[in-house]
Design a protein around this nucleic acid. Sequence first.
DNA 1: GTAGGAGCTGGAGTGCACTCCAGGTCAACC
DNA 2: GGTTGACCTGGAGTGCACTCCAGCTCCTAC
Lengths: 127, 127
Amino acid sequence: MTYSIAQAAERSGLSIDTLRYYERIGLVDPPARDSGGRRTYSDDDLGWLIFLTRLRTTGMPIRMMREYAQLRHRGAATAGRRKQMLFEHRASVRERIAELQSCLDVLDYKIAHYEQIEHTFVEGITA
Amino acid sequence: MTYSIAQAAERSGLSIDTLRYYERIGLVDPPARDSGGRRTYSDDDLGWLIFLTRLRTTGMPIRMMREYAQLRHRGAATAGRRKQMLFEHRASVRERIAELQSCLDVLDYKIAHYEQIEHTFVEGITA
DNA sequence: GTAGGAGCTGGAGTGCACTCCAGGTCAACC
DNA sequence: GGTTGACCTGGAGTGCACTCCAGCTCCTAC
């Protein structure tokens, strides 16, 4: 199965411009071209694109994604290094989640505070 | 208790430049000045700065923080609107956490995959 | 055979959130 | 009274990750 750039964009959630941009900066290998010179993405290409969106979503900078992509390009010999990268990245994502969770507590507290104010106000009215 | 800009920076985790920047764009009220024209931050100022860092950490754009700051400036009458903002923001933070969590699953899967490769490799050696 | 739409390239532009800088003031210490 | 260090202002510069554009080509459908 192959996909036009528009289809690859739709399925990966990246924009067409971003797909070309990622290719230009070496984040994705140049996909095959059809007889008219248009990009045709394979299922493998798409899998990689989708994986990249996960890394992006979790805040990995492009510079690091590129490093990962380059290791991947060098084959099985770099598997350990890649695993190490993902391992460290996973730790940072976990930290990030913990950080967000602790900010959630602050938001909960603030919202509760506003609710208390509302409640006091209503009591003031009805008392 | 009052704080110099350097102390406010240290305690809020923002840089000195960022403190002045936030003031310039209306995210924080201009703090008092000492006889020499230097900023002196109050405990209240500091509390607001720290709250802003929570909003920032959770990904609230400056434009929205400014909106919140403006409502806050208009006093108790806007409490409902502010609560609403925090309420919506909290929902988006929760979504963000869920998103990260689901990406974590992908990372776990990938890492497990690399571990399996390593394992296979070791077996290949020792067999 | 032509009109329309998708895709192509190289390069410029954008939005966000800072960050840095030059040139100056001010208070304190030696 | 001179030097040092913290702070001041207005404005320019930075890094990141796209996003947009002009001008072109190439297939498809009428």
